[in-house]
Amino acid sequence: MEQRRWGDRGQLLKLESVESGETNGCAGVARLGSAQVGAELFSLWVQLRGTAWAEAREGRFRLRAGQWIAFEKDSRPLIQADRHGLCIGLTLDAEALRRLGGFADCALYAGRGRMGRHDALITLRLWREACRRIGEGGTADVTALRPLLLHLAGLQQELSQRIARCPGRSRSRKRQVFGRLQRARLYLEGNCDRVVRISELAELTSFSSWYFSRTFYSLYDESPQAAAARLRIEHAAELLRSTTMMIGEVAAASGFDNCCSFARAFRARYGVSASAYRSGLSQARTDSAKSSGAARKATARGGT
């Protein structure tokens, strides 16, 4: 029998650690369901279908099919699926994370990213197998999650390659620093609708502002300020693509005080004005629709 925890059809699933005793295991949300993760659990979520929203200490995120997101132990994320959404995840306590490092000298970190359809199908299969093992054993021992954990760690391989850049004499110290910086980067992504102060990021990572800025640059090849500015402009471009908001509304929703500063920043990033960017997208959609229509007509004529 499979054992998994679901937040489905508007239900709220509470994934607490100490009280429930279910610290490690599989969970999912679907069809307007939601899940609230406790303060002592690391969690990783994979969006398989539709969309979902995640709200945590690091900010607010929209998940689309093929995307994954991971949160640290005290992030307390709330995952909310849309009407057609399906999002699967797992929760891990501190001991499980420690044992993961002993499997194959690997670890999981906070952050977000994408996976292809093939990797998504593998993730779903391993997740289901983990649910079955937990159900048969009656307990969520971390060994039942091992294949899934190793697969997810492999998906984060591109992230973990940066660990060598982190300061520290031991690999464990480098991992600790990397984990904190990854969380700060996730915080920037989750707050791309406003200006983020360096002091906020330093407090989040428990580093001094000077040490944080220096380490962030050596790890990601851009300063925290540059990363924040880039993410805000990319957020604005996403709003231009996916909404009908006016340019001034997009600027405000991306943390700009006035349209002039937004216009300069947007042109510097994309080489065109925001209005021209949106017009180009509209024209591209029109041309694509015309091409598709012409192809369908040609196919219909050929079949008669």
Rank of each mutant, 00 (worst) to 15 (best):
L126W: 03
I79C: 04
C131T: 14
N258H: 00
A96T: 00
G111Q: 05
T304V: 11
R194D: 05
A289L: 15
Q11C: 07
S34W: 07
R175M: 09
R112T: 15
L44W: 10
A300Q: 10
G137L: 06
D193K: 07
R173T: 12
G21F: 01
R146F: 08
D105E: 09
A298H: 08
I88K: 04
G101K: 02
R173K: 11
N258F: 03
L97M: 03
I198S: 14
D82P: 00
Q3Y: 10
N24Q: 11
I198R: 10
F212H: 07
S213N: 09
D93A: 02
S34T: 05
R99T: 11
A65L: 03
Q156W: 03
R241H: 07
A81E: 01
G137Y: 12
A251D: 09
R232E: 00
W53T: 11
A184T: 01
A70S: 06
D221H: 14
R197F: 13
A120R: 05
S172R: 12
H151F: 06
P77A: 01
S254G: 08
D141L: 11
A300E: 07
T304L: 15
R112A: 10
A263K: 11
A39Y: 07
E234V: 07
R232A: 05
A70M: 00
L100S: 11
E158Q: 15
D221E: 15
Q47K: 02
D257E: 12
Y187F: 14
C166Q: 09
A295C: 06
R162I: 11
S291C: 13
F212W: 07
Y211R: 09
T286E: 12
E72G: 04
E16T: 09
R117V: 10
A184H: 11
S34K: 09
Q67R: 11
D8W: 07
A284Q: 13
D193I: 12
I163R: 08
H84G: 05
R232N: 08
V142S: 01
P147E: 02
A110S: 07
Q67T: 01
R267M: 13
D141M: 06
H118L: 15
D93C: 00
L48N: 06
W68R: 02
G302V: 02
V196N: 14
F256D: 02
R278A: 13
I122R: 08
A295R: 12
R173P: 03
A227Q: 13
I198W: 08
R146Q: 10
R83I: 03
T123D: 05
R183S: 04
G10E: 03
R83S: 08
L86T: 03
L44I: 15
A284I: 13
G113P: 04
Q47D: 08
A30Y: 00
S218V: 14
G154T: 03
Y220V: 12
F71K: 00
S20K: 06
R232K: 05
R230M: 04
A54K: 09
Y187T: 01
Q225C: 10
L32V: 10
C131K: 04
L239T: 07
